[in-house]
Amino acid sequence: MKRKSFLLVTILMLTLSMVLAACGGKEKTGGNGEEGKSGEKPKFISILTGGTGGTYFPLGGSFANIIKEETGIETNAEVTGASAENMQTLKDGNGEIAFTQTDIASYATEGKLMFKDGKIDNVKAIGTLYPETIQIVTTEKSGIKSVEDLKGKNVSIGAPGSGTAANAEQILEVYGLSLDDIKKKDLSFDESIAGIQDGSIDAAFVTAGTPTGAVEQLSATEKVVIVPVDADKAEELIKKYPYYTKDEVPSGVYKLGSAVPTVAVQAMLVVNDSLSNEVVYDITKAIFENLDKVTHAKGKLIKPEKALNGVGIDVHPGAQKYYDEKGIKAE
């Protein structure tokens, strides 16, 4: 009997230890499971960026280093197809943090345009970073001086389905115009500028950080004109589409004699909302309080006091906690 009792106790103890190991051995990660809500740090997170030749990738590398140094979380910057792809990847749970444009993030969360087949509801904002300026590019010889002057002209609005195409349509809208009022061309930035040079295109919408290389090349051979977006129209646009913000193309860029008012969407950081408030707070604080460690030139444009401007989607509670502590509000 004693032997049977001993065996029974041994079996019960082994069973209990296995159950405890199973309960306690679950990793606290930033993935899609509820365990990410616990507040414990994930062991690894990935930052989805863009192509190696763009701005997102080198910035992402700097942010990854900062996060690792300040939070102890192993962090890696991944090469991707940028904004739209990044939003879909976060939805699928294959990344934790991503770069995207504010307008693309809004389309994703609302299920519009390139996301009409399914909205994305598991992504929140960390904050905006720097402007991606909407530049309506033409030349002095075109005679185009205003958005209204685009009527009847050959105008490139960017690649089909692009954020630039949506920007063009929305700006025309606040001026009482539509795509039917122009001779629409769906061309890449380089193709658009080449078209302006050979006369087949009168003007082109370009959404990019300034100065934009293709437009700089144009300014070497032509007197570039950037068509302004008037202040009242900018305000109307921002009221209807809150991911826009006021911006300008500075004097001297493209040899401009004076600054030109326009609007911009913002490059921004977003996060899978399965990451806990504590982790996102730590990440937000780490990035915005160590911007001196960012080596890319765009780092100089990133300011925590501007991080809520033009966000356009819900801010993650962890990031919001940081802004509340600093007294930061959207302007």
Rank of each mutant, 00 (worst) to 15 (best):
L269N: 11
V249R: 08
N32S: 08
A105D: 03
T138S: 12
A231W: 13
D103Q: 10
I97L: 15
Y281Q: 05
E325R: 01
A82S: 12
K285I: 06
K68A: 14
E278W: 02
A231L: 15
G158N: 04
D121R: 04
K329G: 11
F115P: 12
E70G: 05
M87Y: 10
E305M: 10
A234Q: 06
V224T: 14
T128S: 12
S146N: 13
K233G: 09
K43Y: 10
A105N: 01
F189A: 12
Y323E: 05
V265W: 02
G61F: 09
A166F: 08
M114T: 14
D230K: 15
I73L: 12
G51N: 11
G33H: 05
I73D: 08
A264G: 10
L291C: 11
E236H: 14
K116H: 14
K239E: 14
V253H: 07
K233N: 13
Q88R: 15
T80H: 03
I47D: 04
S192F: 04
S258P: 14
N309K: 06
A194Q: 04
N122E: 11
A234V: 02
V280D: 07
Q197T: 15
E74Y: 14
G209C: 00
I104N: 05
V249T: 12
M18F: 12
A231P: 15
T210P: 11
A82H: 11
S162V: 05
V279P: 01
V229L: 07
P261F: 12
L150F: 02
V279M: 08
L179W: 06
Y244H: 08
I134R: 03
P42E: 11
N309L: 01
L256H: 10
F44M: 04
A234D: 00
P242M: 08
S258G: 13
K240G: 13
V79H: 13
Y243S: 05
E289K: 05
S162K: 03
F205G: 06
G24E: 01
E69I: 04
V249H: 09
H296S: 06
I283G: 04
D103A: 00
K306S: 08
